[in-house]
Amino acid sequence: MGVIVRAACVAFACWLFAVQMAAAQPANMGCATESPANAPQTLRCEGGVTIVAENGARFTLQDRDGNGRVDSAELSSKALLLEVPKKQGGNRFQVTTPQAIAAVRGTKWTVDAAEGKTSIFVVNGRVAVGRRTGSHSVTLGAGEGVDMDVMGPLTVKRWPAARVAALMARLGQ
């Protein structure tokens, strides 16, 4: 029994350390955190990138080109709302989930990762969405979304207002 309790304590300490590291990470990539009580976390990053994370969202920010600015996120659960300004050339900002890769140049969109499924919705602009494995992709425009699982087709749909409102409410919008 003592071994189990010690293992649980070690696991909790590791989890706590990882959470603290994730919270500290945005400052290292040119992002400032705005977190009003009981509201989703908002990160305002250099280059005009804004990321709103649903309470409890699990994600990491990345700097793929090594310039010190966030240019991608790996999302494993819950939702992010992203606003990325249009820029000339360079890498597209992308969000990767277990099922999908969504990449943009200048838009506002959401990515919602749940076990076995990723949903992507575009508020404005355009987003290219594809599977992590495979080459098939679709492009979403304003008001459109796609629900992806491991095997099903990538079917672009106009999302009903009630679904959009429910997702945006989770993100404090």
Rank of each mutant, 00 (worst) to 15 (best):
V10A: 10
Q25E: 14
V138R: 08
L167P: 09
A169K: 14
D71W: 00
T97G: 00
E144F: 09
G89F: 01
V84N: 07
M151L: 14
R170P: 01
R105D: 06
K108C: 10
R105V: 07
Q88E: 15
A161L: 09
S137C: 04
V3D: 15
G134W: 11
Q173D: 12
D112F: 00
D71F: 01
L140W: 04
V164F: 08
Q62I: 09
P26D: 10
R6V: 12
A166Q: 13
L75V: 00
N91H: 12
S72T: 05
L154P: 03
I51S: 08
R132A: 14
T139D: 08
T139P: 05
V164W: 03
F59L: 09
G48D: 09
F59Q: 04
A11K: 07
R132H: 13
V150W: 11
R131S: 10
A18N: 13
Q99H: 04
S35C: 01
N28E: 14
L81R: 15
I51C: 11
T107R: 04
I120F: 02
A100K: 00
A114L: 08
A23N: 12
F17C: 14
T42K: 15
G90Q: 08
L82N: 06
G116K: 02
A7K: 11
C14E: 14
C45S: 04
V84C: 00
F17A: 15
V19D: 10
A165F: 07
M148R: 00
P153V: 09
L167D: 06
I120C: 01
K78P: 06
C31Q: 05
V95H: 01
G56M: 07
R64V: 09
V104M: 09
P40A: 08
L43Q: 01
R92I: 00
I120H: 05
T42Q: 14
N91G: 15
S135R: 14
A57L: 10
V5F: 14
S77W: 02
C14I: 11
G143C: 08
E83V: 11
V104N: 05
